[in-house]
């Protein structure tokens, strides 16, 4: 299996400004500034990583950069872009891409990811991960955008599968076929959001397990787990909302177990972005993921040993 957990390499000047903390086999959490004092106080520096939304660190200076620099000293960091609009047809915003590349350069993140979605049309930014049709035409455009990002950041990007609520009538291929072809054309890696798989499968009435068996798991460099909320569609059936406002659902934990059994202990993030709990609650959720990763890491060692 190719190694997609890309390690902090070198800045353009050839010098490492931050320690190269490895991220292999670790569980992490979204980094929230209000947790920083608790994180530093509990001193548990041997494990875990933190993921940040790139856009929150695109200001010139101030407390956000101070907090990120502080956490990056002691932990691996994953840089997660939320609004590159890779899934939109219009050209990428060059200024935004430049800012993104600068953050990669400055913080030497262990992982860098973006979404298969769009959020800007013309000059308006909609602040949501909006869906796209899956066709040969959109595939070509998305592949061009990913290539452009990868050239700018000088490393592979991990592309995240979306949570969707509608399907496009004009789509001619499945999401998994689309993603598989994107990987083949661009060499990008994948961020498998298992909550998104479960949410989309429920909303689009297909099997999450079948989705996972069609999905190119061998290219996964990171996993996301998150909580979701529940509403009803027009027919009164269950419609799941990717809300990131609570603990990971049992169904999602079960899928995680299946994925890790197949892929091994891939870096796994607990996303929790609203109704954010105290640090110990978030940390406990990451520890639960870590226990599963550790179990399969041990199994993997046993299997290797048995095959030797």
């Amino acid at each position: 299996m190719p190694k997609l957990a890309i390690h902090a390499d070198r800045s353009a000047s050839g010098t490492l400004r931050f320690p190269a903390h490895p991220i292999d086999g670790l569980a992490g959490t979204s980094f929230k500034h209000q947790h920083l004092p608790s994180i530093l106080a509990d001193g548990d520096r041997d494990d875990g990583f933190f993921e940040v939304h790139a856009e929150n660190y695109m200001g010139a200076g101030g407390p956000p950069h101070a907090a990120l620099a502080r956490i990056r000293e002691d932990y691996p960091v994953s840089l997660h872009g939320v609004c590159m609009s890779i899934g939109g047809p219009q050209p990428l915003d060059k200024a935004h891409l430049g800012r993104f590349a600068q953050l990669v350069e400055r913080y030497e993140p262990a992982l860098v990811s973006e979404h298969l979605a769009w959020s800007t049309h013309n000059t308006t930014y909609y602040n949501d991960l909006l869906p796209l049709p899956y066709t040969e035409t959109t595939l070509r455009r998305v592949a061009e955008h990913i290539n452009e990002v990868q050239v700018a950041i000088r490393r592979p990007l991990l592309l995240e599968n979306p949570s969707t609520y509608v399907r496009f009538k004009e789509s001619t291929m499945s999401e998994t076929a689309f993603i598989r072809e994107i990987v083949r054309r661009t060499g990008c890696g994948l961020l498998l959001d298992i909550n998104n798989v479960f949410v989309s499968a429920t909303n689009q009435d297909y099997s999450a397990l079948e989705y996972l068996s069609d999905y190119p798991l061998e290219h996964v460099g990171e996993i996301h787990l998150a909580g979701h909320a529940e509403q009803e569609d027009d027919e009164g059936d269950r419609l799941l909302i990717d809300s990131h406002d609570g603990p990971v659902a049992d169904d999602v934990w079960r899928l995680f177990d299946i994925v890790v059994d197949r892929c091994g202990p891939i870096p796994t993030l607990i996303e929790w972005d609203s109704a954010i709990p105290e640090w110990p609650v978030l940390k406990a959720e990451a520890k639960a993921a870590q226990a599963i990763l550790d179990r399969y890491a041990a199994l993997q060692r046993e299997r290797k040993h048995a095959n030797a």
Binding site: Y126, D128, R167, F168, K169, N203, E232, D233
Partner: peptide, 22 residues
């Protein structure tokens, strides 16, 4: 008109998720 739910389902409440998110 370019979106729908699965298996001929309606997409009004589904599209409302995006309206609401934004």
């Amino acid at each position: 008109a370019l979106v729908a739910g699965p298996n001929g389902k309606a997409a009004d409440k589904r599209f409302n998720v995006y309206r609401n998110n934004v």
